[in-house]
């Protein structure tokens, strides 16, 4: 398997089949004298900002701190929760067990449901 080709930027699907987001970042672990390994998948706007260019990091971080759910900056998912790998990565956890949908819920509560017909 190849990490950039098969894991990075792929869509994450939770155990119920819902879209959770995409793999924006990957964390590797380098133990002393043992083989390094892939330990965590990460999602987050700041990570994407950094991948585009360093100049974007501060504005995006500022936005995240002042607008919206103001949750912890990044969502981490342990590699062991990856159940199946295909075009998308299927996990064995529910999206709501993570902070992945924080913005979705925040917008749903504070914006969308306040507009008539939003549901």
């Amino acid at each position: 398997m190849r990490i950039v080709r098969d894991v990075l930027d792929k869509k994450l699907i939770d155990v119920d089949g819902s879209e959770m987001g995409r793999v924006d970042g990957i964390v590797l672990e380098f133990p002393q004298d043992r083989q390094p390994r892939l330990v965590r998948l990460e999602m987050g706007g700041e990570i994407l900002a950094e991948r585009v260019g360093h100049w974007l990091i501060r504005p995006v971080t500022w936005l995240g701190a002042h607008i919206g759910p103001r949750r912890k900056a990044r969502v981490s998912i342990d590699w062991k929760h990856v159940d199946r790998m295909g075009r998308d990565l299927h996990l064995d956890i529910r999206a709501d067990e993570t902070e992945a949908l924080a913005w979705e819920h925040w917008l749903a509560e504070n914006f969308i449901s306040r507009i008539p017909g939003g549901g």
Binding site: E104, L107, F111, I112, S113, G117, G118, G119
Partner: peptide, 12 residues
């Protein structure tokens, strides 16, 4: 397909 609240970011 669903109600806007079911895809809040998309509707926003």
């Amino acid at each position: 397909e669903g109600k806007p609240v079911e895809e809040a970011r998309f509707s926003t």
